[in-house]
């Protein structure tokens, strides 16, 4: 395929992406629906200009690879061609996390109910994305699966609605649970294992310019067959964990310190160990959302 460009309107950013990989085009079209613009509008203000292209070289013939560029920077090693769409998703995350300083950006899922949002910062393997996917399909609004964009000196979080990245066993679970959802093709054997992206539902996209007020932060830990265990975190602990999950803490400097310490003062913080998602949902709703003003 010849190189082609398309635009993605993902509030608050507009991306222009150049690619010569059919798989990228197909998946982007499927995942982003109306937000995918097949034709580049030259009059549009574009925030980031990215490209994901086939690697040249002899390797190209027997094991084709994809390379991701933001400006002339290449943050990742090339990946196998069948992982190209996942790579683009990670590349978009990398781009925002390493350039945007108008928000304090925490590596975290963000879901909202009744205008109140809960952050779920967690390392890979904690089941965060499965939890995000479950909530997003059970009456909660998805703001983001990967990054909470907090307006400095406030407790407001801005949505950055993107597909949810599911791994390994969660792939089949998600396909069974959410039969109406749209899924990308599977990127096999990435450094995270098998990976699939699930499109956000249309209501999440429709409200992607509506901020929410953060009322809680929950650090989830998936434990197979475990009963739900809830630990309240003291502020010092919660703050350190939140700061460690903040992409741009160092560049933001004082402003991120003030934002996060102030935020921690006004919200509830928990660590939970769980296996039953319905139990978790009830806890979040009854003990955090309904009890906070």
């Amino acid at each position: 395929m010849k190189k082609r460009s398309f635009q993605l309107f993902l509030s608050p950013f507009v991306f222009q992406i150049q690619t010569d990989i059919e798989l990228v085009l197909e998946n982007a079209r499927l995942m982003y629906g109306e937000r995918f613009k097949e034709r580049v509008d030259d009059e549009q203000f574009v925030d980031y200009y990215l490209s994901i292209v086939k690697s040249s070289g002899v390797r190209h013939f027997y094991k084709p690879q994809a390379r991701f560029f933001c400006d002339s920077r290449e943050p990742f090693k090339p990946l196998r061609l069948n992982q190209a769409f996942a790579m683009l998703e990670w590349g978009m995350n990398w781009t925002i996390a390493s350039h945007e300083l108008q928000y304090c950006i925490v590596h975290s899922g963000v879901l909202e109910k009744d205008g109140k949002a809960i952050l779920f910062p967690a390392p890979p393997g904690s089941g965060k994305s499965t939890l995000t996917a479950f909530l997003a399909n059970n009456g909660w609004r998805l703001l983001s699966d990967e990054m909470a964009m907090i307006l400095p000196q406030t407790n407001q979080v801005i949505p950055f609605v993107r597909p949810i990245c599911l791994k390994n066993q969660s792939i089949q679970l998600a396909k069974n649970w959410f039969s109406g959802a749209k899924f990308s093709s599977i990127a096999r054997d990435t450094h995270k294992g098998d990976v699939i992206h699930m499109a956000p539902n249309s209501s999440a996209f429709k409200q992607n310019q509506v901020p929410a007020k953060i009322v809680g932060v929950v650090f989830p830990q998936y434990r197979p067959n475990a009963e739900l265990a809830i630990y309240q975190l003291d502020m010092a602990d919660a703050f350190m964990q939140l700061a460690q999950n903040t992409f741009n803490f160092r560049v933001l400097g004082n402003s991120s310190f003030t934002t996060l310490t102030q935020l921690i003062e006004t919200i509830q913080s928990f660590e939970i160990h769980y296996s039953d998602l319905e139990e978790v949902e009830a806890f979040l709703r009854e003990d955090i959302i309904e009890r906070s003003s």
């Binding site: 690697s55 002899v58 390797r59 943050p75 990742f76 090339p78």
Partner: peptide, 13 residues
């Protein structure tokens, strides 16, 4: 590099 693709070596960002 030309045989295995340009980037089996860590790119320097």
């Amino acid at each position: 590099e030309s045989v295995f693709g340009e980037h089996i070596f860590t790119p320097k960002d």
